[in-house]
Design a protein around this nucleic acid. Structure first.
Length: 736
DNA sequence: GCGTGGGAGACATGT
DNA sequence: TCTCCCACGC
């Protein structure tokens, strides 16, 4: 079989270990690669594609590879081009969302959005949910927009359309109405939200057998990375496409499942084995990334989630022990980080680009950034929101989006009076009313007004007509220019016409602020400049689907990022900061066992990013809402094997040794909650008891599992949901 | 119509 | 500590 392989591919195969080679060269068919951290799964995935092309003569355009980020997609494509040359072109590589967006644009006949739809960002989505609630006269006092939106998104990710949404209680009936209205508003704007991309793609394939045939014939080989973080819809999509030819290669690791809250379901790994029973399962166990002490720490942390101990081994040697460092507060934490970095750089142990600082919440980056600035150390901050969330950037993107899709109401509302052009509430209301009357969007009406002003002279009063006409003429002229200008030239034209620089100067408090905002505009210009003429659509889509990791650029500076954003990356030296109760595990995750387990896996993911050195930092207090708040060290630290750790671990848990035995006996999830530390003595629950939960209301205990002095309860709430709860942690009381 | 200033609420994690 | 929203005055 490997006869006639390019020599680069031969070399590559000899560089793999036995299991990796087995995965790469396995005969086509369903394959599940069980890949621990640092086991070379990215390589395996890339080589697998190369192997299909080179050894099985699969044309690249018959291959679909789904990656977790666009960055990963880009890297895979580049590597393949290096391995195979031009042969790799035609390959489809991208995220689920990008793939679905592309499919929907290619099949406008099968959905009502036409090919020129926009993708609603998080802000648009909230705005539309709010609008939907206003339309329905639903007060946000009882139905906070965030929560309603979350419920809708959850439903979508489970594959539910408004018709499928439950109506078992008043709350759900209300949300169902909002969901329905929200979809109408999206459609009127010719916009899809992130979840819709998947939802509609699945619907198309389900409802149109011809389409399903077309796509499953086209993509006869499908590969999916980070399979444990796929959600129900994504799994469904894969299944629809792969059912026929069954050449489906998935790579995943349950222990790195950290997106349950976003609808991901690691049980897709089990579903996969059920739907493709003939699947070959190949475990990749050897770790090439970390030294053994780091792996020992990782194993200790993940241990409570497994019946049998998890084995992670490396040939890299013991390495240096994991350092646990206790500091007074978050400022000292930042100081410790920067000073350690400087010291390690000074002594030649590492370069600036080798470091990563990971935290649970984005808010934690601030203190760290301040310290980096103070010490004049450059840093790279991972986070798409950081740049694309800026007002000036969003405003300019809204201009481009509106020109691309005049129905995009969110964008129009955003910029219709930015900079101020005399269009206030009154004028806007008149515009929208008239648009509604004519069955147009406000943007479409404006373009029509520019084309036939005389038709509108009697519709609006003189003042309103004049201000609208002025803006409409601008829109129309940009739109006419759009077809021949590159995205950059179009942007420049807009910047010039609206005198944006002047506007920034006039609305900024200090000259420096105007300067910074203008620099952001220049940065946007730089990004736009990479797109050729007629690629505005691609630019807008790339921006909309940009992931945090996609913003990470090469550079010789430490990287600041959340633990979530760290997935799939590796760094020689890793600091994980804020290892305290309330942050990791996060306060909002402590009452639900599954959420708690996910926090543990998140810590595990962070630990396993480190190649050579790992520092775990524990502040004793933090400044929060005006006072110093005392903090307790994260319960997960108790599961670190003391032999692999140096530093302050024993100071944090003076009684650690005594409790060790009990912890061992404890079951999954409850392992490290020592009874002495819970906030209050847990009452004893029994099956059949009626209980009240602070959030979910009344319910009945349906099962009780004793676990290391604590109890794991399954509670069936009257709302219809059943939740696992930890007796000592859940805000639960016995009633009646 | 528009700018300003004060008060309230917010910080999970992100496509 | 920052952002959003509303009320008020010009």
């Amino acid at each position: 079989m490997s006869q006639g392989l390019p020599s680069s591919l031969e070399d590559m195969l000899t560089g793999l270990n036995e299991k990796q080679r087995e995965a790469v060269t396995a005969a086509p068919g369903p394959i599940l690669v069980w890949a621990g951290p640092g086991s070379g799964k990215t390589r395996v995935l890339t080589y697998r594609v190369a192997y299909l092309i080179a050894a099985h003569d699969v044309p690249p355009w018959r291959i679909l590879a789904v990656t977790f980020t666009n960055k990963a997609a880009r890297e895979m494509r580049e590597r393949l081009e290096n391995l195979l040359g031009v042969k790799a072109s035609g390959l489809t590589v991208g995220t689920f969302h990008a793939f679905c967006a592309r499919m929907l644009r290619q099949e406008p006949a099968y959905h009502p959005f036409t090919e020129r739809f926009v993708i609603a960002d998080a802000e648009d989505q909230r705005r539309l949910v709010k609008q939907a609630m206003e339309d329905l006269r639903i007060s946000d006092t009882f139905y906070p927009v965030r929560q309603v939106h979350a419920a809708i998104s959850r439903a979508k990710n489970a594959g539910q359309w408004p018709d499928d949404f439950p109506e078992n209680d008043l709350r759900n009936r209300t949300i169902k109405q909002v969901y329905r209205r929200y979809q109408e508003l999206l459609l009127a704007s010719r916009a899809l939200d992130f979840d819709d991309l998947l939802l509609w793609a699945v619907r198309l394939l389900e409802e149109h057998p011809g389409l399903r045939r077309k796509y499953s014939e086209r993509y006869q080989h499908i590969l999916v990375d980070e399979f444990q973080d796929t959600n129900a819809l994504q799994y469904h999509l894969v299944k629809l496409l792969a059912q026929e030819h069954r050449n489906i290669f998935v790579v995943g690791d349950m222990d790195q499942s950290i997106y349950r809250w976003r609808g991901a379901d690691y049980r897709n790994l089990e579903r996969f084995q059920r739907d493709f029973p003939e699947a070959r399962i190949i475990p990749l166990e050897e770790n090439y990334r970390s030294t053994q002490y780091i792996l020992d720490a990782a194993m200790g942390v993940i241990r409570p989630l497994h019946k049998k101990p998890k084995r992670l081994y490396t040939r890299r040697g013991q390495g240096r022990k994991v350092v646990v460092k206790r500091v007074r507060d978050t400022y000292q934490e930042a100081t410790f980080v920067v000073e350690t970095i400087l010291e390690m750089v000074r002594t030649g142990q590492a370069q600036l680009g080798d470091f990563a600082i990971m935290y649970r919440t984005n808010a934690q980056s601030r203190v760290m950034e301040d310290r980096f600035l103070e010490y004049r150390i450059p840093y790279r901050l991972v986070g798409a929101q950081r740049f694309y969330g800026r007002r000036e950037v969003k405003d300019l993107l809204a201009y481009l989006r509106l020109l691309y899709n005049p129905a995009d109401e969110s964008s129009l509302l955003r910029i219709i009076n930015v900079p101020p052009r005399g269009i206030g509430m009154k004028t806007l209301a008149a515009l929208r009313t008239q648009a509604q009357r004519m069955g147009l969007s406000a943007g479409e009406l404006l373009l029509d007004l520019a084309a036939h002003p005389e038709t509108y002279a009697s519709t609006f009063n003189r003042r309103v007509f004049n201000v609208l006409k002025h803006f409409a003429d601008q829109l129309a002229s940009w739109q006419a220019a759009m077809t021949r200008l590159s995205p950059l030239d179009l942007l420049d034209r807009i910047l010039h016409d609206i005198e944006y620089k002047t506007f920034l100067r006039e609305t900024s408090r200090h000259p420096e602020e105007a300067e910074t905002r203008w620099e952001n505009v220049m940065e946007l210009r730089r990004l736009v400049a990479e797109y050729p003429p007629s690629a505005l659509e691609q630019f807008l889509e790339d921006v909309a689907l940009m992931s945090d990791q996609d913003t990470l650029e090469e550079g010789d500076a430490p990287t600041l990022l959340t633990l979530h954003a760290a997935k799939g990356l590796e760094f020689p030296v890793v600091f994980i900061v804020g290892l305290v109760e309330g942050l990791l595990p996060h306060a909002r995750s402590t009452e639900d066992i599954e959420a708690l387990d996910e926090e543990r896996r998140l810590f595990y993911v962070g630990i396993t990013r480190a190649k050579d050195r790992l520092f775990l930092v524990v502040p004793e207090t933090r400044w929060s809402f005006g006072t110093y708040e005392p903090l307790n060290p994260s319960r997960f630290l108790k599961d670190l094997p003391p032999e692999a750790v140096s530093g302050d671990l024993e100071k944090l848990f003076p009684h650690l040794k005594k409790k060790k035995k009990r912890r061992r006996a404890a079951a999954k999830g409850a392992s490290s909650t020592s009874p002495g530390e819970s906030t209050r003595p847990a009452p004893r629950y029994r099956e059949g008891m009626r209980v009240r939960h602070a959030r979910w209301g009344l319910g009945t205990v349906v099962s009780v599992e004793e676990a290391g002095g604590d109890q794991i309860l399954m509670v069936a709430f009257d709302t219809g949901t059943t939740k696992p709860l930890l007796a000592s942690m859940a805000p639960l009381e016995i009633v009646g």
